[in-house]
Simulated scan of single mutants.
Amino acid sequence: MSCSLRISPYLPISPPGRLNELLSKKKTELTRCALLALDEADRMLDLGFEPQIAAILGHMRHDRQSLLFSATWPAEVQTLAGRLIAPSHVIVEVGGALATSGRANTSIEQRVLLCDDAGKMEALLTLLEEVVDGSRLLLFTSSKRRCDELTKELRLDGWPALALHGDKPQEERDWVLQQFRSAEHPLLVATDVAQRGLDVKGVAAVINVDCPETSEAYVHRIGRTGRAGEVGRAYTLVTPADARMCDDLVQVLRDAKQEVPPELLRLAAEGRAARYKRYKYS
Rank of each mutant, 00 (worst) to 15 (best):
V90F: 12
A55C: 05
W159R: 06
T28A: 12
H220Y: 12
R6Q: 15
H165Y: 11
E263A: 15
M245I: 07
V231L: 11
R103G: 01
A204V: 09
L19E: 02
V250G: 04
H89G: 07
P87Q: 12
G58I: 05
P261G: 11
A123N: 10
R18Y: 12
E21R: 09
N208T: 08
G202C: 14
G134M: 07
I222G: 04
K144Q: 09
S107Q: 05
L253I: 15
S14L: 13
E129Q: 14
T100L: 11
A194Q: 02
S282W: 02
K26E: 12
P212M: 09
V131T: 06
Q195E: 15
K280R: 15
G96A: 06
F140A: 02
G271T: 03
R146S: 04
L22Q: 11
L128I: 09
V94S: 11
G197M: 10
A194F: 01
P12Q: 05
I56S: 01
P261D: 10
K26T: 12
D46Q: 13
I222K: 06
S182L: 10
P212A: 14
D199I: 09
S70K: 01
S70H: 08
I56F: 03
M121F: 12
E109S: 09
G134L: 08
P240K: 10
D242Y: 06
C33F: 02
A37S: 15
P9S: 14
P262M: 15
V176I: 14
A118F: 13
A205P: 01
T141P: 01
E259L: 09
Q78K: 13
P74D: 12
A217S: 15
E172Y: 13
Q179R: 13
A241I: 04
L47E: 14
L187Y: 03
R155N: 07
G17D: 10
V189Y: 00
E93C: 08
L127W: 09
K277R: 13
Q170M: 09
Y279F: 15
A204E: 12
S142E: 05
W73Y: 15
T126S: 14
D42E: 15
P262V: 12
G232Y: 00
K168V: 07
L198S: 06
A194T: 00
G48W: 06
E153K: 13
L23E: 04
L249C: 07
K26I: 03
D199W: 07
L265G: 07
C211A: 14
T141V: 05
L5T: 02
A205Q: 09
E122F: 04
R111K: 12
K257E: 14
G202R: 03
G17W: 06
R6T: 13
V260E: 03
H220E: 10
I207V: 15
A269N: 05
A55M: 02
S215K: 09
A269T: 05
N105A: 13
G232L: 01
T100C: 04
L264T: 05
R278C: 02
R32Q: 11
Q170D: 09
V219S: 05
K27V: 04
L67D: 08
